[in-house]
Design a protein around this nucleic acid. Structure first.
Length: 274
DNA sequence: AGCGTCACCCGGACGC
DNA sequence: TGCGTCCGGGTGACGC
């Protein structure tokens, strides 16, 4: 599931190119829609018309969204569970689950592959229409422990569901929330308004460390997506129920919190504060 | 209003 | 083989 580090990895690939031309500067000649429900807004017919002949100015990321400023308007893509975006030359055969294909000049194609079809594409005049409700970027310089403290103390919520709430903080999903809480030594069922200053500092550090580590390893490849990402080999707790904690060797536990599988070390992340 | 819970959308993986 | 169940990001409905 692409979270901030995976989306960042994809954004960097598309922006910088490598074995492919960099995406900025490319013009969209048309679009081929094999799963029209990918298009969240505007209507499919309006989308087809407005996307034609737009040129891509840049590739950015905000939370888990890929953001493509165009010469007119902004294209946004949310990969949700199983999405991947790749620049591929049209001479290569389509793969299964290539649902939305942007046709670029010289035969290049930007392919949105999405096994579970939960991904969404937006074309808007103002990106804030979509991004406006997101919380802060956890890796931005403005995101300080003080900011986190303020946000946490405004709420009375369980830490785990709060961390994956995109309106609270943008970019954490199940993997990085579990890893961040483990790094911070905080139980996922602790309450946001019950943390002291040291715990908040640890949580801030845990969030940043988990995300940076994910980016350093080019993200995690768990639904066999994401070119070479190997953060999955460095999980401390995520999907490691029953295995030893890398810090203290205690068996990792798995519980359900807010309908989500949640992994933690019962020894490093004690249930109740002292 | 703020919070937790649940159903929904999908298809791959897995268990029986 | 084939069926049922689980899983998950985000949204929206519902109830407390």
């Amino acid at each position: 599931m692409p979270e901030l580090p995976e989306v960042e990895t994809i954004a960097r690939h598309l922006r910088d190119g490598n074995d492919t031309p960099p995406l900025p500067g490319r013009r969209i000649e048309g679009v081929s829609l094999h799963w029209p429900r990918h298009i969240a807004t505007p209507s499919v017919s309006t989308f087809r018309r407005r996307i034609r002949n737009r040129s891509i100015q840049d590739v950015q990321r905000r939370g888990k969204y890929l953001v493509f400023p165009l010469d007119q308007g902004t294209l946004l893509v949310h990969l949700r569970m199983s999405g991947d975006l790749q620049l591929v030359h049209g001479k290569n055969p389509l793969e299964s689950h290539d649902h939305t294909i942007f046709l670029l000049e010289n035969g290049w194609q930007l392919r949105f592959n999405d096994t579970r079809k939960f991904g969404r594409v937006y074309l808007v005049s103002n990106p804030e229409e979509i991004l406006g409700s997101l919380g802060p970027e956890p890796l931005a310089s403005g995101f300080t422990p003080k900011v986190l403290e303020h946000l946490l103390h405004k709420r009375r919520r369980l830490l785990k569901p709060l961390l994956i709430d995109q309106s609270f903080l943008a970019g954490l999903g199940n993997i990085y929330a579990d890893e961040a809480l483990h790094l911070a030594g905080l139980h996922p069922l602790r309450r946001s308004d019950g943390l002291d200053q040291w715990e908040i500092q640890a949580l801030w550090q845990g969030i940043r460390t988990a995300l940076k580590k994910g980016i350093r390893f080019s993200g995690a490849s768990i639904d066999r997506v994401y070119r070479g990402g190997e953060f999955q080999n460095h999980f401390a707790v995520y999907q490691r129920a029953g295995e030893p904690c890398p810090v203290c060797a205690t068996a990792i536990k798995r519980i359900k919190v807010g309908q989500r599988g949640t992994h933690y070390c019962p020894s490093c992340q004690p249930e109740v504060m002292a």
